[in-house]
Design a binder for these strands. Structure first.
Lengths: 198, 198
DNA sequence: TAGCATAGAGTGATTAGTCAATCAAAATTA
DNA sequence: TAATTTTGATTGACTAATCACTCTATGCTA
């Protein structure tokens, strides 16, 4: 987001409306498929107002990504320091991420859509590695204590993330499983069995 | 692809040149970022020729996807019937897929780019379920014989695919590991340990 | 009244797709 | 075989539409 000066309450409301409209339209019609004019119209502001808050369309896309991804990070991390065991910490992150994705499926889809688009700038990518850091530290700690296999940290991180995405994909198609605690328990063990030292 | 009449050798050559140019440009500049005019220019044909073979730009994108995905399917499946054990069959598919991805990283990137874009039509998706069928049958057989865990077939399929994508992502970033057979062996066991009944 | 937010018509650039003209090769005729 | 006609591929200038972004006039608030 691009802005010079103090951001007032009414600014924030307007910006939020633009974000909301953009998220809705991007996920249903794609980045290219949504003209800025339609975003403005859906948000209930004039075309010019959109460009008052965002330098370009690309700026809007990148800002929205940062906002959404940040939301995911905050909600997943919040409260983790109260937990002691490494396994429980990993499980905490795991279930919080799933919880977030199940309550905001559109936002998850946006993240994926963005990740595989040519809009990503190294700049944006770097800003977002907070959650990766948390995972990486956990994994490293686990390797040190001997709880987690001594395999490349990067590999473990990628596999966890991909496994998580897969599980969410399945849950979105079979939402009743999400409320089946036996299933959810098993689903975590499926991935943790890979990581843990037998 | 859209065409009326017999497709000659020279047609195929032209079409291939268009596909090649499109793949190159789409993966580096995105679907929206590449004008059809540039595809035609790169392919060395006139603008009108492109539209002679493909009804619309979207038709080109979808056709290219089908072609690439089909290539992956064919190369992964070819020879699998000579193998007996289920585990070895799964491993065969697994390593063939990785092999293909490592020799055609651009095509893999295109597949992912497409999967998370709004160009997918149900039509296209259905046409592409051939490889899924092979996997699904293998999994079902494995469940019946007791070799594979009795979990939802769809879930197992999604997890395998995601795990595979993750592994490829890692290998592309660390290509030296691809030639390390100890690593490659371990990488397969990582996923098979999830599936197999202990 | 000063200063910033908002509006929305306007602009210039871009692009998917068209179409009438051209060309090459195959088919037909002499 | 040579001349002529037919067929369909190929071309690229052109068009109609779209879109990101600008700009100036107006509104609002402190």
């Amino acid at each position: 987001m691009y802005f010079r000066g103090v951001i007032s309450q009414s600014d924030m409301e307007k910006i939020d409306k633009i974000y909301k409209a953009a998220l809705e339209l991007f996920t249903t019609k794609g980045f290219h498929g949504t003209p800025t004019s339609e975003i403005a119209k859906t948000a209930g502001v004039a075309n010019g107002t959109l460009f008052h808050y965002f330098k370009t369309k690309e700026d809007l896309i990148n800002s929205l990504y940062l906002k959404v991804k940040n939301e995911l990070v905050e909600e997943s991390i919040n409260g983790i320091d109260k937990i002691d065991s490494i396994k429980l910490k990993v499980e905490f992150l795991w279930s919080k991420s799933i919880q977030w994705a199940m309550t905001h499926p559109q936002k998850l889809f946006f993240i994926q859509q963005y990740m595989y688009s040519p809009y990503i700038t190294t700049n944006t990518l770097e800003e977002v590695d907070k959650i990766k850091e948390v995972y990486i530290k956990l994994i490293q700690e686990g390797i040190k204590t001997g709880e987690i296999k001594d395999v490349s940290v990067d590999l473990i991180y990628i596999l966890m993330t991909q496994h998580l995405f897969g599980m969410i994909q399945y849950l979105i198609m079979n939402p009743e499983k999400y409320h089946n605690s036996e299933f959810m328990n098993m689903s975590f063990n499926l991935i943790y069995d890979i990581l843990k030292v037998n």
